[in-house]
Design a binder for these strands. Sequence first.
DNA 1: GAGGCTTGTGTACAGACGTACACAACTCGC
DNA 2: GCGAGTTGTGTACGTCTGTACACAAGCCTC
Lengths: 181, 181
Amino acid sequence: MSVRRHDPDRKDRIIDAAIAVIAEHGVAGTTHRLIAKAADVPLGSLTYHFTSLEDLRCQAFRRHAERMSVIYEAHFRAVHTREALVEAVTDLIEGDAGADASDWAVAYELYLAALREPALREVTETWMRASRAVLERFVDPTTARGIDALIEGLVMHKTLSTGPVSRQDIRVIVDRAIGSS
Amino acid sequence: MSVRRHDPDRKDRIIDAAIAVIAEHGVAGTTHRLIAKAADVPLGSLTYHFTSLEDLRCQAFRRHAERMSVIYEAHFRAVHTREALVEAVTDLIEGDAGADASDWAVAYELYLAALREPALREVTETWMRASRAVLERFVDPTTARGIDALIEGLVMHKTLSTGPVSRQDIRVIVDRAIGSS
DNA sequence: GAGGCTTGTGTACAGACGTACACAACTCGC
DNA sequence: GCGAGTTGTGTACGTCTGTACACAAGCCTC
């Protein structure tokens, strides 16, 4: 039968599988069994490594948020001029920055879940603070808040809309939001 | 036992109850039984009026989107100056326009659900077109798109953040997004 | 009142869910 | 090699899910 496998980073793989399942099925469709199948791991392995499904979800969201922070950070590292900033934000919204539609979908799942699960508030709080901190290297805090909100709103629109916004339009909107910094 | 009640607008009440349940528990926690309890109708009544839970959810989202459209429309009706527009958008974000946090939560549930259920795309599409149409009475289409995205992003941040944005900050951000129209 | 016909509901069912736990598989000191 | 201790898993349990459907309740025509 199925032998017991030596598998040191199994816990990590389960968390990654959970992120993938959330991306594909949403929090509503995320179950122990689906995650176990995605990670190619027996069902009992999930309750062994995590105290509950909520616990696993929380760890998955935390890891995802950390990865998004790293992407943000890396994406803006080489930016030094206002012009480059406009371009970088535009790239981010267009999905050319290491975060694709599926990554954003998980982020939105996190936001919505955080509305109801207080334990997740800390995750969203940290992530939002981090993303704003990156932008505050270029603009004042209020503007950073505005750009951050704009990015999320535009990505949402872009993902949902059948007639997506053109790159040129995004650039115009972003340019205006950044103001005369 | 429980008598059969004459109840002409029961179907409407069920849809409203479904909206309330989605607001409180999210799509993930929305079940026939919860909705039935909220609407104070027997369980069988739901499968009688709706072919499936997905059907009911869809109708609930459609009604909610229509109500949001009406709110948008009414909220901007008296706006005639640029200054009034800034104030109106700011009010909307602050929740002083007939749409509270719970209404926005349902809207976000809709967006996320629409990512996976193609039947809901039509609802989001119509709703987004309507909200942009209202804004396009004051600004050009590209700017309208930007303001619309900004509203949604800022509301999300405002709802999640423990340290919310001040009204003055929102006004500054909105003012800039509107540009020199 | 008797019979059809529409309207509505209590209940039952099969399946999926989260979770607990007895026990199998491995490790290691001796 | 062998027992004690640790690590991991198959399976079973109770609960909750969406949905179907037999049948009760009301209505309408004669």
